[in-house]
Amino acid sequence: MLDDRARMEAAKKEKVEQILAEFQLQEEDLKKVMRRMQKEMDRGLRLETHEEASVKMLPTYVRSTPEGSEVGDFLSLDLGGTNFRVMLVKVGEGEEGQWSVKTKHQMYSIPEDAMTGTAEMLFDYISECISDFLDKHQMKHKKLPLGFTFSFPVRHEDIDKGILLNWTKGFKASGAEGNNVVGLLRDAIKRRGDFEMDVVAMVNDTVATMISCYYEDHQCEVGMIVGTGCNACYMEEMQNVELVEGDEGRMCVNTEWGAFGDSGELDEFLLEYDRLVDESSANPGQQLYEKLIGGKYMGELVRLVLLRLVDENLLFHGEASEQLRTRGAFETRFVSQVESDTGDRKQIYNILSTLGLRPSTTDCDIVRRACESVSTRAAHMCSAGLAGVINRMRESRSEDVMRITVGVDGSVYKLHPSFKERFHASVRRLTPSCEITFIESEEGSGRGAALVSAVACKKACMLGQ
């Protein structure tokens, strides 16, 4: 009897593995994704193909990295998701002549009506938060230079001027797309009239992360975010950046690689679950690469896999709870928690219980395998993109072996128990001629924006502006 049951459990697990095998990517698959990513990057950089390229390769006008001589107080704003952060950054000489960066910050959550109302409502709310922060720190009387981390696709015309191309991540505030974001912020500050600010720089969160990590390690020339969304930036040779005049030196390019796949480059790798996630998203047909990796989508992918296993009578005796059938019910943090389970399955059992399920031991094991399959594919897909960037940098610099540091931020990278190990191992397999160091950014977005502002202020002083 026991043997029969054991055989049935083994057969069930084997069927589960057959279904989950769809998520496995072979090294040849990853090399294919990497080569296609490089081709799209090239198209994004070139003037004649930029418009139709899915990977936009947006110039950021960040050319210099901090040298350690900029000092002063800077205000930093960070808008990239449902939370908005205001930070005071003091850049100065530390002990023994070292450079020191001290920060104080406060988080504000953005109400739904500000995210989806008008641009005026959104930026009025942001300036209200700045006003509140300055009151708390008794700094209303000071006109501070301000660095703005704005983590949406922007076409820069200068370091302090950028046109919002399109909202992502659930934002829909009308009247912002096609307009200068810094102008919208300046107008809102003017409307309030109770404080003055000098907006000197606007950067993407990947750029802010790279600059913040450069402060720790001067070989950091790539910034990457794996959180709600997924994106990367890197220092490109100016001669390859056709959208900006000049051939000397390097400029940081914001790849906006989340949109890779929007022209069909990933079609052969998309599964039924991916198509369902895409169809029910706020932007169907867009940001397809990001939807395979980002935390906004990972939990939902797992939920759809679990429903398939229920329908195949391989999980929960073929019956799903009402909660499990509800879109968004299986949160991405559950994926991390399930994979963090120590082996007694308590954590998995508790999560499934909150979803109205009474799982068996085998159910718990199957749910864990589903989570591992989805998150491992995410790590491997992400590795193909980064390997594409790094191999490109090595080739354009004609280096036999390139040493490089990548600064990384984002909740999936930082909080998932195995993502970074799987990701690092896969990147290294795909970049055999590179020695890569990964560092995690601390308060990256805010500190990085302030350091970019410090560079901009120093330049302005040198130019006598």
Rank of each mutant, 00 (worst) to 15 (best):
L2M: 02
A6Q: 15
K12L: 14
K13D: 14
K31N: 09
K32W: 05
K32S: 07
M34K: 01
R36S: 05
E48D: 06
S54G: 13
T60F: 00
V62L: 00
E67F: 11
E70A: 13
N83E: 08
F84Q: 03
F84D: 00
L88W: 04
E93L: 14
E95W: 09
Q98N: 10
S100A: 10
M107P: 07
D113F: 08
G117T: 07
Y125H: 14
Y125M: 13
D132V: 06
M139C: 05
M139D: 11
K143W: 01
F152M: 10
P153A: 07
W167Q: 14
K169I: 11
K172D: 03
S174Q: 01
V181F: 09
V182W: 14
L185Q: 01
L185K: 00
I189R: 05
F195W: 08
T206K: 00
M210Y: 10
C213D: 00
C213L: 08
V222C: 01
V222K: 00
G227M: 01
A232D: 00
A232F: 02
C233E: 00
C233R: 00
E237L: 07
E248W: 05
E256Y: 12
A259V: 09
A259T: 14
F260G: 02
S263G: 10
D267Y: 06
L271A: 01
D278H: 14
S281L: 11
N283H: 11
P284M: 14
L288N: 15
L288S: 14
E290M: 15
G299V: 05
E300W: 01
L307I: 05
F330S: 01
E331L: 15
R333M: 13
S336L: 07
D344K: 01
K346L: 09
I351C: 04
I351W: 03
S353L: 04
G356V: 02
T361C: 03
T362I: 04
T362D: 10
C371F: 02
E372M: 03
C382F: 05
G388T: 13
I390Y: 02
I404C: 11
G410A: 05
V412Y: 14
Y413R: 09
K414V: 09
H416R: 11
F419C: 02
T431G: 04
E435S: 13
I439S: 08
G446M: 13
A454I: 11
K458S: 12
C461S: 15
